[in-house]
Design a protein around this nucleic acid. Sequence first.
DNA 1: TCTTGCATCTATAGTCGCTACAGATCGTAT
DNA 2: ATACGATCTGTAGCGACTATAGATGCAAGA
Lengths: 139, 139
Amino acid sequence: MGTLTETRGYAIGQMSKRTGVNIETIRYYERIGVMPAPDRTAGGNRQYNHDQLKRLHFVRRSRELGFSLGEIRALLEMADRKDFTCGEVHEMTIGHLASVKEKIANLKKLERALSGMAAECSRGDVPECPILDTLFEPG
Amino acid sequence: MGTLTETRGYAIGQMSKRTGVNIETIRYYERIGVMPAPDRTAGGNRQYNHDQLKRLHFVRRSRELGFSLGEIRALLEMADRKDFTCGEVHEMTIGHLASVKEKIANLKKLERALSGMAAECSRGDVPECPILDTLFEPG
DNA sequence: TCTTGCATCTATAGTCGCTACAGATCGTAT
DNA sequence: ATACGATCTGTAGCGACTATAGATGCAAGA
């Protein structure tokens, strides 16, 4: 039965496979306090429970969305204490969205600059290149 | 006259002001071999020449365009040896451009996901939030 | 029961690109 | 001569992991 599996919990490798988070990274999350210290087997191996699995999913999904571990810690602390409001979470999300938009804008500038440089390049076999020339310019 | 200034070279602070690169960062570039070890005054202060100023400009502009220090080192080595061709530089630029485009695409995905989550949020004073719910989901 | 062999353990160092100290010395203007 | 800012070295910290070494744990087969 699944019940037995549940009471035994998940080994770190199981957690890794289920969430896609690297084993080393899971231990790292524990070290920095993003994940709690789990139970241990008699021999000292980590044994996670279902809540901890959900928590690790949360961390991974948030990281994928570009939240920093600091932001994730803040979100998790609110969720742990249950003292958050939906408005607070919304605010954090909007703030993060703004920084994502800014990053996109900056990268688009880069994209234009790189395309421009590449377009002016003859791609020839010659040892002179407008790209390098541009980069050596002071302005 | 400017000639005197030129023979004396630039102190690290001058380099920093002219290029916008932090003093600590200039020393860091020297440590990792991106910038050469400059001459020193009798007392041991760094004295840069005009070529080194140009080189630092190159590094800064390339960093602004998102090239890694590894890529910059490669470009500089080619330029130093003068054994590069325009086509090689073009190739590196195009490769970098591709990774910039990829980053933009990924960030746009994030942007959509974050906007979607924020839109479903009531922003209320209630301690329940569809954003957190979404993040806790396994999928 | 023993052995094989993968999984996991701890601790430490490395990555990238800086940035921030502390405490000493240099250089220059008055 | 002195004051003061600039620069010096060396080291440690950041964020978010990743990699390694060497020692164990654990489960399954003979």
